[in-house]
Write a protein that binds this DNA or RNA. Structure first.
Lengths: 249, 249
DNA sequence: CCAGTTCTTGCATAAGCTTGCCAGAAAATG
DNA sequence: CATTTTCTGGCAAGCTTATGCAAGAACTGG
């Protein structure tokens, strides 16, 4: 087993269970605890996990207990949400991933909009429920405590049965060469299914994540139709995407 | 259980109940009171709680010293939840309806419990997510905004595919002649499916709702195995149910 | 293809953390 | 004031971590 492979596995485990023990990882992957510790150290240095005595925790672990509004990129996300909301029209079926940007989208919707929103993210659905008129469909399956979305084959099967007009994806990393990538195995599979089930794919990403890369590949940029960031559409950072034929808002 | 995890649990408990006792925490998490005290000390040093003789208080405690929400039936529900929680054992598959009583059940679970909980109620699932070790399966379908649960044929189909060990139903009305009844058409159908999918049916009901009737019939009392109220099991009000062969807790 | 270099891993040892227990002090209770 | 409960600080046991080292694997540049 390669080092990177091992670290990806560890990261996946952390994201899945919110915590890992050095001892059990050592048993599972059959390497010494020293190696595990070194891996945990590296992942912690990269900011991907939180290392604690005896193992490691997911970053979102704390957020479950102390929801911190990262006011930082919050304003950016509001701008993005505003642009995205303008794409939704009455009668549409809208498929959305999870993530804070999508929550902002839910808040930015026209209060008179009559459309159907579909998501497997619990925080996102909570936000949709505040809206007076939209219909909501929740994708069910095993709940991932860390990402607060439902994951698994049943969730994917449910998504496959949908034909949505538009799909909004909160994106973790995108660059013109590698396409879209993410750090969570389950999430990648869900998003892939969402892409297959939608006529139009819209990616929402703060500029910070443009031209970045995450361990797991999701799809090529050619699959997406629209890219929304907080930047003006003619910003030079976005030129490669415009040139690739993607609508940039 | 990792130290951080334990502290997160304590913090959650403090925020939930506005107070905790060192002694009961020690019992719940199965560590010595010394450890609890040290945790409380650390959390207090970080300004997250207020440590007092015998336990700790939430920061918001001062502001809501006289809690306004109807502590009335709330305490009753806590008693019910406590009794219900004692029926759940490691490894079980537990199907639950929605409702405030079930939320209390989620809060009353042993923090070391390892079981799988299945529900279509969004507030209930949110509460389950606070638990450190249980697995959660969310039933998906159309979200009913007023009851905050997923309803519809897809939800029912998902429930049908389950074989649960035990099913906890929050009950709106029960009487010995008409059985269980409810006021929401969709909810009745879901609960019927839940009953069919479970080996053991446990009804949770505050005494106020005993011997009452709602417009839509759900099932006969003969279908249920256990009835839990806040009253002592030998209360005369419950006698007809005991006589009907139902276990009363 | 090979020698030199860098990476990676497991082991041993020492240092550090966490926890439970204890004795005496302090606080609450009636 | 006596009794009970809780708190504090210190200590020891057990487990976890850091560090240096050595062996092997993988890579690099002739």
């Amino acid at each position: 087993m390669l080092k990177k492979e091992r670290q990806a596995y560890i990261l996946h485990q952390v994201n899945l269970h919110n915590k890992v023990l050095s001892s059990s990882l050592s048993l599972n992957i059959n390497v010494s605890e020293d190696t595990i510790r070194r891996d945990l150290q590296e992942l912690a240095d990269e900011g991907k996990i939180i290392k604690v005595h005896g193992g490691a925790l997911s970053h979102s672990f704390n957020q479950v207990y102390y929801p911190v509004n990262n006011v930082y990129s919050h304003d950016h996300k509001k701008v993005i949400a505003q642009k995205a909301a303008s794409l939704v029209q009455d009668g549409m079926f809208v498929l959305t991933s999870g993530g804070t940007t999508i929550i902002e989208l839910a808040r930015a919707l026209d209060p008179q909009l009559k459309a159907t929103f579909i998501s497997g993210s619990i925080p996102v659905v909570l936000e949709y429920m505040q809206h007076p008129t939209i219909e909501i469909i929740l994708i069910g399956d095993k709940v991932s405590k860390n990402s607060k979305i439902t994951v698994g084959s049943e969730a994917i099967a449910q998504i496959r049965r949908i034909r949505a007009d538009i799909c909004f994806l909160g994106v973790n990393a995108i660059n013109i060469k590698d396409g879209i990538s993410d750090s969570d195995w389950e999430v990648v599979h869900l998003k892939k299914a969402m892409i297959e089930s939608s006529r139009k794919i819209v990616c929402l990403s703060i500029a910070e994540k443009i031209n970045s890369l995450q361990p797991i590949h999701l799809c090529e940029v050619s699959k997406i139709h629209t890219l929304i960031t907080e930047l003006p559409p003619d910003d030079p950072v976005l030129k490669p995407y415009r040139d690739a034929g993607i609508e940039v808002l």
